[in-house]
Nucleic acid binder design. Structure first.
Lengths: 142, 142
DNA sequence: CTGTCTGCAAAGCGTTTGCATAAAA
DNA sequence: TTTTATGCAAACGCTTTGCAGACAG
């Protein structure tokens, strides 16, 4: 039995071929595609699938915590199968979004500690987004 | 001569009463209103001003670096007269956006250093957004 | 006078909602 | 059989664009 299907069923989601394809595609890519981009890939396998189904499925996956929706920049949302918070780098050249997990992590605990204990806030989520040019696009611009 | 008007003119922007009111309003508030909220305030003084003028004026101010446009959460953009990057806290209770400048600052230099020197990226901007409940809304929810 | 801004309207885009049909459990 | 998903279409909200008249420089 497929592990992805089990995870869907555990969350109370019905397992359909379209969902398996969408979730599977997200889990097997290192990039963070937009709903439009996910649709483009899924349509190769399911030519009849509607953009709306892809979009609402991504919403369902996010709502149950299986994936993360990234509100990066001003344009369409990006989706990330890694649901735990991490640093994202957005290139304004190629418009791709990269993870920054292999670099010295910034320690956010002083920030959350002060917000929680010092100010009495509650903290749900932290977004740390870096914008600039990736290695390839830097050389193209110089 | 008004300092705000000087700053507008320095950036090549013409000084109109509407612009002065919009920029002045943003500079004199600690909150980070949406375009809609700015419009609400400006209309008290200029009942004929259109939402579009407010919106495009905010865009012009942002384009020349006088203000910052915050892409926080999923809804309308917020505007901040403090153009230098700093931590923002968004309350999901009252939907307000607060600055986090008076708390131990997170040191982002290891992150930018590794991205620049280690990976050869260029870094334009860093956004650090925290989501949760502010002190007042925490007590209301308990 | 010239270039820009204002106000109005319409269009664009990402997202959300409603509903009949189809499929999973 | 019951519940949820799919596919289509239309609506929605925020943002952007086009244009004629008004205003700042």
């Amino acid at each position: 039995m497929n592990g992805l299907a089990v995870r869907l069923r555990e969350k109370g989601l019905k397992v359909t071929p379209q969902r398996m394809a969408i979730y599977g595609m997200l889990c097997s890519t290192a990039s963070h595609p937009t709903a439009e981009q996910v649709w483009g890939v899924i349509r190769e396998q399911f030519p009849a699938v509607s953009f709306n189904t892809v979009y609402t499925t991504l919403g369902a996956l996010e709502r149950c915590g299986l994936i993360q929706r990234l509100h990066i920049g001003e344009n369409a949302a990006h989706y990330d199968a890694n649901a735990k918070p991490h640093v994202h780098f957005t290139c304004r050249g190629c418009a791709q979004v990269f993870d920054c997990e292999d670099i010295p992590e910034v320690d956010l605990r002083p920030l959350t500690d002060e917000l929680k204990r010092g100010k009495g806030y509650s903290v749900d989520k932290i977004e740390l987004n870096v914008y600039g040019l990736c290695g390839e696009c830097v050389t193209l611009e110089d």
